[in-house]
Nucleic acid binder design. Structure first.
Length: 403
DNA sequence: TCTGGGGTCCTAGGACCC
DNA sequence: TCTGGGGTCCTAGGACCC
């Protein structure tokens, strides 16, 4: 049976949500109506554009570019900081509204959901339901969404990306030629900046060109990715709307340093803080890890990473840090470092593993982790000395200013 | 001139075993 | 002395997404 799928996509999520949060807190201005962006902190070297207002966009400001560039294009630009707690809050409001329409919702990201309406239409027309959701979100939640209406997830997602904002678009099979095949190849989901030039070299310019290309040729050239782009271009996607909350397959944190680190003794405390964060998140999910990965980025923006397997699965901060330090000693090439990252992989549920008698993690250590986790839950990460050497260093100046 | 942070999945090559 | 494959596991890096 034909499936009935919707893709709900918040228009300009970070900027819209920041705007209505400011309005709710008494702000006189709606930053959606001025040249504004949501961005990072240039002083901390994390200054990139995360979202832009329509006026900022009209000046040529694009997402992902350095704020420095954006300001050159648009001197009046006002920069606002993002707040993910606020964003999660609005994301949940949207999700709860959507739950009134179906039980089968996949939260694809903080601002995107897929809805499987197949068994929930009760005689209604799919598009009219989409229009109702669109209207209700605007009236009740004060931000706007685009909604894609289709018979699979891929086409619903492509449809929600058509004209914005505040629109409902259908993309049914008989509409492919008119609405999708005319678009440039770069518009197809999963075709990024590396693949598009390769396609251009093959005289493949539009999504329609991909659809008409011999599938085996694409497979030969791009492997599985080629198979996928051919199917997507032809509107084929059988993946189900997955409403289960999945456990993460890896957990990592990384930080760009305000100044390049010039030797390994400066990298060490960064790794301590990252291990605290990663360990805390692991334990929160009740997971244990079997692989530790350390990533470095040089001042010239060259990334490299090394990984090692743990002798036994663990969620202990101390064990993760110990191996991370070993990896760091092994890989560090005595050069200025801009970013340090720590990730754990090969995760499994904590109650699935048997506690090895030879585990070198003492119960004392486990208890220390637990005690610190409780403090973190209660007061936030900054309250913990062991965890926050880095954060203190990074935030000192800011907090002083705020105080 | 300056370039975030969180993920998932895939591939290629090397080591090792049968 | 010179010659196979197949399979698994592991690692580093790349491409893509939001």
């Amino acid at each position: 049976m034909e499936r009935q799928i919707l893709h709900v996509d918040v228009n300009n999520a970070f900027l819209s949500w920041t705007a209505i949060n400011m309005l709710e807190n008494g702000s006189e201005i709606d930053i959606r109506t001025i040249p504004a962006i949501i961005g990072g902190d240039e002083e901390k070297r994390s200054g990139i554009v995360l979202a832009k207002s329509p006026i900022a966009k009209s000046f040529g400001v694009v997402t992902g570019e350095p704020i420095y560039f954006a300001k050159k294009k648009c001197p009046e630009l006002q920069v606002f900081r993002g707040d993910f707690e606020v964003y999660h809050n609005y994301s949940n409001k949207l999700y709860n509204l959507l739950l009134e329409y179906t039980d089968i919702i996949e939260r694809f990201s903080i601002d995107e959901c897929f809805l499987d309406m197949t068994n929930y239409l009760m005689g209604r027309d799919l598009k009219s339901v989409a229009c109702e959701i669109n209207r209700r979100v605007k009236e009740e939640l004060k931000f706007t969404v685009n909604i894609g209406v289709a018979h699979n997830k891929l086409l619903a997602k492509m449809a929600s990306d058509f004209q914005k904002p505040d629109k409902v678009h259908t993309l049914f099979e008989e509409e492919l030629a008119d609405k999708m095949w005319t678009l440039p190849a770069s518009e197809l989901f999963m075709l990024g900046r590396k693949t598009v030039p390769k396609l251009l070299n093959m005289q493949i310019k539009t999504i329609g060109d991909i659809a008409k290309t011999d599938k085996m040729l694409l497979v030969k050239k791009f492997g599985k990715h080629g198979q996928m782009m051919w199917e997507y271009a032809n509107g084929i996607d059988n993946s189900p709307v997955n409403n289960k909350v999945e456990l993460p397959k890896s957990i990592g944190n990384s930080v760009t340093l305000p100044k390049d680190l010039m030797n390994i003794s400066e990298i060490h405390p960064v790794l301590v803080a990252l291990a605290e964060k990663v360990g805390y998140r692991l334990r929160k999910y009740k997971l244990v890890a079997k692989v530790v990965n350390v990533q470095l980025r040089t001042k010239d923006f060259v990334d490299y990473s090394h990984q090692k397997r743990l002798p036994f699965a663990t969620s202990s901060t101390k064990e993760i840090l110990k191996l991370a330090n070993e990896i760091l000693e092994m890989m560090y090439k005595n050069e200025p470092i801009r970013l340090v990252g720590l990730r754990v992989d090969d995760l499994e549920s904590e109650d699935e593993i048997q506690l090895s008698m030879f585990s070198s993690v003492s119960s004392k250590q486990t208890n220390l982790d637990k005690a610190l986790d409780q403090l973190t839950n209660k007061y936030g990460a900054a309250s913990i000395t062991r965890a926050s050497r880095l954060d203190i260093k990074l935030n000192n100046k800011k907090e002083k200013n705020e105080a």
